[in-house]
């Protein structure tokens, strides 16, 4: 009979012992991190109690929206933001292409150059566009030039990383054929790599432009020009009805940019 076998209840565990230990460690670590954060983070109770009243006040002051300010205070800033984002993206794509070529191990066969290029990609991406804007404002003074450069430099990391991955994924067949035919380095890039990475290149550029529209709208808060400058002006003077107007404009262009890029990507790719 199987009585002896069935008398011994079989144990079942979802994970193996080592998996369970690792997971428990992770959960413990996460719990400790959260508790530590909650305990030590500075929260002023009076501010917290005041929050609902302050929030209500915020919305009350925003309403009615000061639409009349658009013509004199916002329109030029909006145009500036759109150009900042676009010009910044163009510049970023140019710079990122160069860095991406240096970072791609199949194009640049030098570990030192690859590593330097990769460091540039990580460093530009880790430092936010706003922080870059602080730098460029210190160097070039406040205005759209600083904003454009901030957008361009910060975008190098993201754009370059995706581009270098696309270049590394390129098939070797056409490249070898061109090399065998004695083509120059430039024509190998133009005729061997370019057709293969073109869809990824356009896709990344469009995607980045969408992100940069959002970014460039706030750069003005630190002097980078555009809508952020208008927002800063309204905030300084506590004109919340004007703040409301700028927020609505930002919301509008972000949504419009998202719709436009979705449409563009569906057409191009």
């Amino acid at each position: 009979m199987t009585a002896a076998a069935s008398a011994l209840p079989r144990r079942w565990h979802r994970f193996s012992l080592s998996e369970r230990i690792l997971r428990s460690c992770f959960y413990l670590l996460a719990a400790v991190a959260v508790i530590w954060s909650i305990k030590t983070i500075e929260i002023i109770p009076e501010f917290l109690q005041d929050a609902p009243a302050q929030t209500a006040d915020l919305f009350a002051r925003m309403w009615p929206i000061d639409w009349s300010w658009y013509k004199s205070g916002v329109h030029a800033a909006l145009i500036e933001t759109l150009h900042t984002a676009t010009l910044g993206t163009i510049l970023a794509v140019l710079l990122a292409s160069l860095v991406a070529l240096l970072a791609a191990r199949n194009v640049t066969r030098s570990v030192i150059l690859n590593t330097i290029a990769r460091f540039i990609l990580v460093a530009t991406r880790s430092v936010h566009a706003m922080v870059w804007a602080l730098f460029f404002v210190a160097v070039f003074g406040p205005g759209a030039l600083a904003g454009t450069l901030a957008i361009a430099v910060h975008s190098i990391g993201f754009t370059g990383k995706l581009l270098s991955e696309a270049i590394e994924e390129a098939k070797t067949g056409p490249i070898e054929a061109l090399t065998a035919a004695g083509a120059t380095k430039l024509s190998i890039l133009a005729k061997g790599y370019w057709p293969q990475v073109k869809p990824a290149f356009l896709g990344v550029a469009i995607f980045r432009w969408d992100i940069n529209i959002r970014e460039s709208a706030v750069l003005g808060l630190v002097g980078g020009g555009g809508l952020g400058m208008a927002l800063e002006a309204a905030l300084e003077n506590l004109y919340w009805d004007r703040v409301g107007l700028v927020l609505i404009i930002i919301f509008g262009i972000v949504i419009a940019a998202e719709i436009l890029t979705t449409w563009l990507r569906s057409r191009i790719i």
Partner: peptide, 9 residues
């Protein structure tokens, strides 16, 4: 910041 004041919160 307007709603809950300056700081980490």
């Amino acid at each position: 910041v307007k709603a809950v004041g300056f700081g980490a919160l």
